[in-house]
Nucleic acid binder design. Structure first.
Lengths: 138, 138
DNA sequence: CTCGGCGTTGACGTTAACGTAAATCACCGA
DNA sequence: TCGGTGATTTACGTTAACGTCAACGCCGAG
């Protein structure tokens, strides 16, 4: 058994988390500085919980989708104040969510169009390869 | 009639093109400097053809999908050398296309997951709104 | 002729998102 | 006790993708 009693919560060190997501510790500290993470401390070491791991995952996903850290932070902040936020905050959060949805939709359209382009280019490319004379393997 | 004889090709000024895509002239010049556009010149003025317009459109779409200008340029360069490129170039182009496709696929997955997150957050948000006491609309 | 408007070329400034390096701390095992 | 291993803070550096500004050219209307 690795743990008995009330199953102490799983924690992560900064480099552990860094390896999990293939980023550097620097990146993780930077995200904290930008208000995206709020790890515990033991002495002066940072202790990350699953909550932080999830946040980091969401942050990185947001980044891959082209959102800025500031955008992501705003969502996270509003989300954190969730069950007890005031009406204005909640309304703002709904606005943000709608914005993000619109973004995603435009991206999907862009992906569709980009795929068509890629198909086209690949087609021409293969034609060009066919037309190459020096194709006597050996 | 605005044009007779062999229907002269439609051209664009830099600010015209800029308006079409809601970017600044500076951006367009910058893209040229980075090898993404190659407009004609009349004196020292830049003259853009439909080919350039299409390139710009593709470039901006690529950007929205998170590609760097350098990545986009490499594709464009190889595409330009297309019908007569050597085998190594063509092979490289196919590699690039496959990379981009992989990117698009990961993005689609990210979009799917992000949508789920948004749905979840929106759900909680609406619950919180319901639970607000001060909702006696005057 | 000259004036306003658009275009051009430098050149330096700016922002986001980290990278990198130096100095310091803390614990752990030989 | 010492030396390595990993963590922390502070601070300056870097890259991509433009923004901004100055100085100049060209040209058509008045």
């Amino acid at each position: 058994m690795t743990s008995d009693s009330t199953s102490l919560p799983r924690t992560y060190s900064i480099s552990e988390l860094a390896r999990m997501f293939e980023v550097t510790p620097r990146t993780i500290r930077f995200y904290e500085q930008e208000g995206l993470l709020e790890p515990q401390r033991r002495g002066q070491m940072r202790i990350y919980l699953d909550k932080d791991r999830v946040r980091l995952k969401l942050t990185l996903r947001g980044k891959r989708l082209g959102f800025s850290l500031a955008e992501i932070r705003e969502v996270i902040e509003l989300y954190d104040a969730l069950p007890d936020g005031n009406a204005r905050q909640l309304q703002r959060l709904l606005e943000l969510l709608a914005e993000k949805r619109a973004n995603l939709q435009r991206q999907e359209e862009d992906i569709r169009l980009m795929r068509k382009e890629l198909d086209d280019v690949e087609g021409r490319c293969r034609e060009a390869l066919e037309a190459l004379p020096e194709n006597s393997e050996d």
